[in-house]
């Protein structure tokens, strides 16, 4: 296959960037999108150019590192796959492919196609966990969990934190990502204990980081490589509302020394 690539090039976070055109040839339809970019980079390196930087690691669709906005869609044209799982057979010989980084205020560009997604870490740090310590927990089978709930929690928990939902959203909202974590934990008895606190803290953190509001366009669900459902966003809204309306006020009790 022969292709024309139009790629966003930006030397560093502070530098100006622009779209630059490249030609690649002799690409096998069976190779992956990244193997195609590897080929381009090898060519650039050998000709004294500057290879294109892009984030990638596992190359099997699970780590969530890869993050390319291809022809107007995060992770490219196929549904339910990450960029690293995309294969060249999804394109036609002679195609022009536009490749851009995720765009969001909360995800600044670091270099070329690489963005800084540490905002997601901050959101999880705001409460995306169950506060249990190593040691001192009950036997795993002490609390039965209905299989349906557990399966639903699992579905929400398969989020890989790639940020495609933010990239796809016209408002750069992170609701699907957070909705998935809130749902995962709220669906399990283990996570319910601190559910009210969790959802409020995570949402507050999300707002602070400059993500947009949810307009329910559902572009996130359409582009999420793991098919995370927007019903998780509704569940988060529900959790949030009931927390705001009904949760006990937190009392700060001074520990007497």
């Amino acid at each position: 296959m022969n292709l024309t690539l139009k790629i966003w090039r930006q030397k560093s976070a502070t530098a100006e960037g622009q779209m630059v055109s490249y030609d690649v040839s002799g690409i096998s339809a069976d190779s992956s999108f990244f193997e195609m970019l590897d080929t381009l980079n090898q060519k650039l390196i050998m000709s004294g150019g500057d290879p294109v930087s892009f984030d990638h690691d596992c190359r099997e669709g699970i780590c969530g590192t890869c993050s390319l906005y291809i022809n107007g869609r995060p992770h490219g044209p196929e549904k339910g796959v990450t960029t690293c799982q995309l294969h060249m057979r999804s394109f036609k010989d002679g195609d022009t492919i536009h490749i851009e980084p995720w765009r969001a205020r909360a995800f600044p560009v670091i270099s070329d196609l690489i963005v800084d997604r540490s905002a997601f870490d901050k959101i999880i740090q705001a409460g995306g966990y169950v506060s249990v310590n190593t040691g001192g927990v009950p036997d795993a089978n002490t609390i039965p969990v209905p299989k349906e709930k557990s399966d639903e929690a699992f579905d929400a928990a398969t989020c890989i934190g790639c940020g495609a939902c933010v990239a796809a959203c016209s408002n750069a909202a992170a609701m699907l990502f957070i909705g998935a974590k809130v749902s995962h934990l709220a669906l399990l008895p283990q996570g319910q204990v601190e559910a009210a606190k969790r959802v409020q803290q995570m949402v507050a953190c999300m707002d602070e980081l400059g993500f947009g509001n949810c307009s329910n366009t559902y572009a996130c669900e359409a582009e999420c490589p793991k098919g995370i459902s927007v019903s998780n966003i509704a569940r988060m809204n529900r959790e949030f509302l009931s927390a705001k309306l009904f949760a006990e006020k937190e009392k700060i009790i001074q520990d007497s020394l």
Binding site: W8, G72, R105, A173
Partner: peptide
């Protein structure tokens, strides 16, 4: 929330 627009508009 998205100060820089995409060059190639969203087609989700």
């Amino acid at each position: 929330a998205r100060p820089t627009a995409y060059a190639c508009g969203n087609s989700s």
